[in-house]
Design a protein around this nucleic acid. Structure first.
Lengths: 413, 413
DNA sequence: GCCAGTAAATAAAGTAGGTCAAGTTATTGT
DNA sequence: ACAATAACTTGACCTACTTTATTTACTGGC
């Protein structure tokens, strides 16, 4: 099962890089404490990182006797990664630097029902434009993380779904895009990526779940900084669990699915059968309509409010289930659909876990809103590229020439 | 975070031992193929295992030219581990040998509402009797795995629940028992242990979920042979997820909990309000009564059948949720309560996943019954002791003198 | 009966990613 | 000036493997 050489479990490099990022400027001693590694390992790892220009010494810190601590800082523009999220309705791309900051972002229309080849062409074009507008040299781009709905075969870089059209089933998404733009490409479930993006490049090692709502409802679980992957390495299908055993049948075959009771599509459809239709000029597409309803709800429209509150109540039941099954202590709401109505959903979910989370006696469970509602998935895609290349648990990047792994120079005496 | 020396990730030893067990007699070359390790590593690992008497060569196999393969076999009675499962209603203890076979088992009454000290005294006594009746020398016993309901703090060996009585909250279960019997002790959630026990010592590396029903309803998820542990290292609380957002309120605070709709306690209570009460002479304790109802259902009693089918239908919804969230391809029903009625529950659950498992298009999802309904949790406890000592991901054993780790001799030239 | 051919097992050396312990270097207090 | 102190570095070593080369043990052709 193992590749030649010795398999790196969680190499020091990723841990050290994360620790530096979290603390902006740090001394080596602090890194010893933060990573749990020994001083010797820190010395060597920092030397490697300096030799490739990822970090740099920026001065010293005097504090009493002894040799002063030499402060280390990231070189944010040493390298970049690109993240793209797309679904039927919308598409977002970001460029993230080594510091984990978004240096450029843009959105464009979703895939709609176009052929995958056409979508890939758009994505490629989009990436090129983004890179040139940010003036990021191509040589500094490590790779692209593409995130979209599942199921998918991450290792093969292929989608396993016939949504939105049958052409996507088995379509070699990663390989096609990699061929086009000549950069390594990795694919990931959007909800899982949103979870990773929520955490960002910093503060890794935490455990939490995300609820992701954009076109549909998905979720992701992160444990000690690693995304949870099931047996077939797919995500956590929150949208299609049943919260009402006697509810309506869903296209997935289940009854009383969360997505079928509370998803944007259903809420918009319900709204179109009420006075909201004319009041809000609905009919401009699911996500646009949903946001309009959301803003109306926040503004006090009682019909809109009732729809959103109803949806939030259903989703809250799912959140309690998620918390009970995965035993997480934190849940984050993210995804474009929560942009306006996040607070309503958050409140319902917090109530639900306060009352119904089995482990609440052992540890409190917090429900939060994301600070980057509409970009989390794209950011996650970008973050996963760097993680993958640093070998922190991940792997599977497709390049024009097959799998690849970033190699940094070994310790140079 | 790491202990001194180099931390063994998943040492070859556990993998080799598993591979030998699976195949009964194997040659080193076959082990190379089975484990993915190289021939050199197999040579060294097998030598270490032979030097401690865990395996032995038992002949050769000729097949054409070349040096004949030397066949290797486990020495099943090289060492033993003890596993105990207890809850309010029942208690089971097993001795498992290195081959993973149960060499002795016995049951005794559950903890009822006795004080933890008294329960520990009983368990200790029970273990001593079991060891002497099986004529297993104490020196060959590696440790004891105690499994019971959660939540618990595995590392500390302490229960974090005030069920069934407040005395259990914070009670140092592992330390008390270890002091009493002078053997290392580890604790584990019963449902998680049942999952591990289901897999047994052999065929490790698989991924599946178990539904465990004894006094209550729990579940466990195993991924690549490792039990899933959430943020607070507790199990998967299937019993307290909601399958009916508008259902009755549970003591846990949630509404429409599976356990509160379909658990043995509730089913027995319902039955006591029907003609079944006198017909089956109910009132002998929850688990005894539940089994009586189950046998009546299997024998065709319509009232009993209706109760069990209703329970199975509710649990089936939970199974679909479990499958969708954890993305497993196999679910196993285990636990004493399924002894008679397993087939009914299995059928309902299989129907539910056939219709509602999101990933069924990507891979089929099988629902099975355990082959060791009432012993899986105890066996799991015993298996976890060996796994823990071999360092295959687990740790946390409490001994009279603190944490401990089995050390086998290094390679001897 | 000897020797080539072949397969299995092992020895020896190398590698990756770390640890440990004993330096070296830079600064402060006296 | 010089000890004390703290930060960092060096070099030897360790574990758990790998790769490569060698030894061992058997078969079959002549």
């Amino acid at each position: 099962m193992k590749s030649p050489g010795s398999p790196p479990a969680v190499p020091a490099m990723a841990a050290v890089l994360d620790a530096i990022r979290d603390r902006v400027t740090v001394s080596r001693v602090e890194l010893v404490g933060a990573t749990g590694l020994t001083a010797a390992t820190i010395t060597n790892t920092v030397r490697r990182l300096m030799s490739v220009g990822y970090v740099r010494e920026v001065g010293t810190l005097q504090s009493g006797a002894g040799s002063p601590r030499r402060l280390i800082r990231l070189e944010p523009d040493a390298c970049y990664t690109v993240g793209i999220q797309f679904d039927r309705f919308t598409s977002t791309a970001v460029i993230v630097d080594l510091a984990g900051d978004v240096v450029e972002r843009s959105t464009m229309p979703g895939a709609a029902l176009r052929h995958p080849d056409s979508v890939v062409a758009s994505l490629g074009h989009h990436i090129e434009e983004l890179l040139s507008s940010a003036a990021v040299p191509r040589s500094k781009v490590l790779g692209v993380g593409v995130t979209t709905h599942g199921p998918q075969d991450r290792d093969a870089g292929v989608l396993l779904t016939s949504n939105p059209s049958i052409d996507w089933l088995g379509y070699p998404l990663a390989a096609s895009l990699s061929d086009l733009i000549d950069l390594p490409v990795l694919i990931e479930n959007d909800a899982t990526a949103a979870a990773v993006g929520e955490e960002g490049l910093g503060s890794s090692g935490s455990s939490f779940a995300t609820v992701y709502m954009s076109g549909g409802i998905g979720s992701g679980v992160v444990l000690n900084g690693q995304p949870y992957r099931g047996a077939s390495s797919n995500g956590v299908e929150l949208g299609h669990i049943s919260v009402d055993a006697f509810g309506p049948r869903c296209t997935c075959g289940n009854t009383g699915c969360i997505e079928n009771l509370a998803g944007p599509t259903v809420i918009v459809e319900k709204a179109r059968n009420t006075g909201l239709r004319s009041r809000l000029r609905l009919g401009q597409g699911t996500l646009v309509d949903f946001k309009a309803i959301g803003r109306a709800a926040m503004a006090g429209d009682p019909d809109a409010r009732a729809l959103i509150e109803g949806s939030a109540a259903v989703l809250a039941v799912g959140v309690a289930t998620l918390v009970n099954l995965f035993d997480v202590a934190r849940v984050v709401f993210t995804g474009d659909a929560f942009t306006d109505v996040g607070p309503i959903y958050r409140r319902h979910a917090q109530d639900a876990v306060d009352k119904g989370a089995f482990m609440r006696a052992v540890h409190p469970v917090r429900v939060e809103q994301s600070r980057q509602m509409s970009d989390a998935a794209a950011i996650g895609g970008a973050v996963l590229v760097l993680r993958s290349l640093l070998g922190a648990g991940e792997s599977a990047m497709r390049t024009a020439r097959g799998a690849e792994r970033l190699s940094l120079p070994a310790a140079v005496p």
